[in-house]
Design a protein around this nucleic acid. Structure first.
Lengths: 112, 112
DNA sequence: GCTGAGGTACGATGCAAGTCGTACCTCAGG
DNA sequence: CCTGAGGTACGACTTGCATCGTACCTCAGC
C-alpha cells in the first residue's frame, strides 16, 4: 500500500496551519521540530492521550498536510519530519514550534 | 464598551494558529502582514465574501487571539495588526504569512 | 501457523465552528 | 432629529472535526 505524500512544491500553508491547529498534532510536530537529529519515530512514542483509531486519524492528517513522511513496515511504522521540505517552503515555521515546545516544557518543569 | 485584548505575554500560539486556520482570517492577517506601513484599516476594506455578522465573528476571533487590535469610533471601527507584539513572541510568523500573500497574488495575476 | 502488537477501514456520535436572520446600537451628516 | 452606513447581540442551523467501537490487516517471533 502506497501512502501518498504531497510534493514539496504542493505544500499548502492552509493545510499545514489547519493541521497545526489541533493541540495533539501541534505537540507532535513541536516535539519533532525540537529534535534536530530528526530520528525516525513511532506513532505511539508520543504518548498521545487518545485511542489507536484517533491516533491514526491525526497522523494521517499530518501526512496529508505534508508535515511528516511515514514508512510502513507492516506491523511497525515509522514517521519522520519533512524538515528540509518545510524549511524550503516556510522558513522559520519549525523554529516557532520548537521554541514553543521548549517553553511548554519549561513551564511544565517549573510548576509540577 | 471595552473590547478586551490579550496582553503580549498571554499570546498563545494555539489560539493564533487556530485563528489562522480559517482561510478568511488568514487572508486578512496575510494582507496586513504584507503591508509594512501597518495602516489602520476598516473591516469591510478586506472585501470578505461573507455577511456582516460573519465578518464580526471573524474579527472578534482575530482580536481574541491577539493578532489584531481594534478601535471603536461608534459608527466606524478601525483595526490594526499587533505586529510588534507578535514579532516579539513569535518571530517569523508574520513573514511567513506575508510571503504567502505575495505568492497568492502572483498566482492570481498569472492565471486570470 | 497461531498469537499478539501495531496499524487501518468504516461507520456512528457528540461537539465546536462557520454561517446567516432578525433586531438593535452608535455616530456622522444632512 | 432623522437617516443610513458600519457594527454588535442573540439565536438557529449546518457542516466539519475529533473521538471511539467494531472489525480487519500485516508482519515478527515463537
Amino acid at each position: 500500500m502506497e501512502t501518498t505524500h504531497p510534493a514539496t512544491a504542493d505544500l499548502d500553508l492552509g493545510s499545514i496551519l489547519q493541521a497545526l491547529a489541533d493541540p495533539h498534532r501541534r505537540r507532535v510536530i513541536a516535539e519533532l521540530a525540537a529534535d534536530r537529529s530528526d530520528p525516525e519515530r513511532t506513532c505511539h512514542s508520543f504518548g498521545l492521550p487518545v485511542s489507536k483509531q484517533t491516533s491514526t486519524y491525526h497522523f494521517k492528517t499530518l501526512r496529508a498536510s505534508g508535515l511528516i513522511r511515514d514508512f510502513n513496515y507492516g506491523n511497525r511504522k515509522g514517521i519522520r519530519l519533512r524538515r528540509a521540505d518545510i524549511d524550503a517552503r516556510f522558513p522559520g515555521l519549525l523554529d516557532l514550534l520548537a521554541a514553543e515546545h521548549s517553553r511548554t516544557r519549561q513551564r511544565a518543569e517549573t510548576t509540577p
